[in-house]
Design a binder for these strands. Structure first.
Lengths: 152, 152
DNA sequence: CTAGATGCAAAATGTTTGCACTAGA
DNA sequence: TCTAGTGCAAACATTTTGCATCTAG
């Protein structure tokens, strides 16, 4: 069985991009931090541990490239920073997010809850949906049971 | 019957903010361009026509304030700019957007299509939803019928 | 009158670009 | 070999902040 990183590398190669050590290190960092929502700066610092000579610009260029290949999605949670989130292999839609307004935690929902909604959008608004972007803001389970009322 | 701007002014006042001419002009501009998704710079230029002495920093500060009061929502469509979108009066949830990947047009859906989905999120993930943010990417009716295949 | 609001300019942030150099295929 | 990729620094764009001044309440 082929590993995920192998497949991503092949994808890069298939689009006739070169497989440089910097790109490999960047992909590796993303895979190792799949749960997180890293900013370009975050990725840069982590990649630097593996490949100290890497420049921030290369990280930006690599992340842009991976976004183009749909390996990652570039997201923006409202702070001024772009973050990068690995897409499930083969997924045609971006997964949903739950952001807790108490503790700030970001959780992911991998199942697609929008099938019916997309049908409505297609029929009622004549819009062909190719992808979606859904984020909920609210109180997560932890904060709810903790009765955590500490206003920020 | 009270006008919308009156009510917004009262809301400002109610939160013990002062009613300055600059703030009034900014709110007016937002109301007059309800259909658009203006950036801070856009708002600044439009407000300048009414109140030439206004500074960009004041526009930013006013928009932040209106976001806090839930009069507008601050959104980010992936270009590096924040945009500001008037919320329907009294709406507890932000409305949905349709972005056409052919022509770039942004349309709005005012009806809330996520009632059932929120119920699932609450019961299945224990997450109390307070607000949501939903954007669809795809092909709008116009581009579809025009067979508009011109990439980008 | 006085705290809050403003305008301006400077600073901070995040991201992109130009260019000479390097190295995958 | 030869073009795509890299690192660095400078350039950019957007947003925030400090401060002296002004003004709504």
């Amino acid at each position: 069985m082929e590993s995920r990183i192998e497949r991503i590398k092949k994808q890069l190669h298939g689009a006739s991009y070169k497989l440089t050590p910097q790109r490999e290190a960047t992909v590796l960092v993303l895979l190792e931090n799949e749960e997180d929502h890293l900013s370009a700066e975050d990725v840069f610092l982590l990649v630097k541990e593996k490949a100290p000579e890497i420049g921030l610009a290369t990280v930006y260029r690599t992340l842009e490239l991976l976004t183009e290949l749909k390996v990652v999605d570039k997201i923006n949670f409202g702070d001024g920073v772009s973050r990068y989130d690995l897409r499930q292999e083969g997924a045609s839609r971006f997964h949903h997010h739950l952001i807790c307004i108490e503790c700030g935690k970001v959780a992911e929902i991998q199942e697609d809850l929008l099938g019916d909604v997309e049908k409505i959008v297609e029929s009622r608004y004549g819009f062909s949906v190719k992808d979606h972007w859904l984020t909920f803001h609210g109180i997560c389970e932890n904060c709810k049971s903790a009765g955590n009322d500490s206003k920020k």
